[in-house]
Amino acid sequence: MENAFWTNVFSRWNTSDNETVLTLKQVPVFHGFTNRDYREIEKLIHERNYKPGETVFKRNAPGEGMYVILTGNVEIFMEDLSGNKNTLAELTNGEFFGELSLLDDDIRSATAIATDHSKLLGFFRPDLFSLLERNPELGNKILLNLAKVIGTRLRKTNELLTETQQR
């Protein structure tokens, strides 16, 4: 039988990645970090559980940060004035959303709802700012990755726009 005391004493020696770190490693915003960096980020992550149909955030609500799906599914959608739902994305394990709120305090552009029992990891703007103060090297790595994600998305948007104009 495993002794709980010694397990606790040597818990810091256990360097194998837990579920949170494994999921974070899949997210482009947190790519290419050292194990120490992941442990640091893990301290700032908020783990939240959602029931099916529960709202993560609503459109036009002030945004505070991004979410990564640890387990479960999340639907991102917009409703028009007559209440017709336009699904923008259906996201699952390892995918992320709301990352623009890490950069500005603008309102959310769409609504996010859990469609299944979901466990989400929240990473918020004030924590990013606090990290930039305490560990600017790691904070800047996150900002650079965030810029890359937004840059890739902008390039794709430009390509789509060009394609649409050519048609």
Binding site: K43, T55, V56, F57, S130
Partner: peptide
């Protein structure tokens, strides 16, 4: 920073971002 995170854990999902 850990205490702050633990405190935020008490906020219900609906008021989570407002609480933060």
């Amino acid at each position: 920073h850990h205490f702050k995170r633990s405190l935020a854990g008490f906020f219900p999902n609906r008021y989570f971002e407002v609480g933060l």
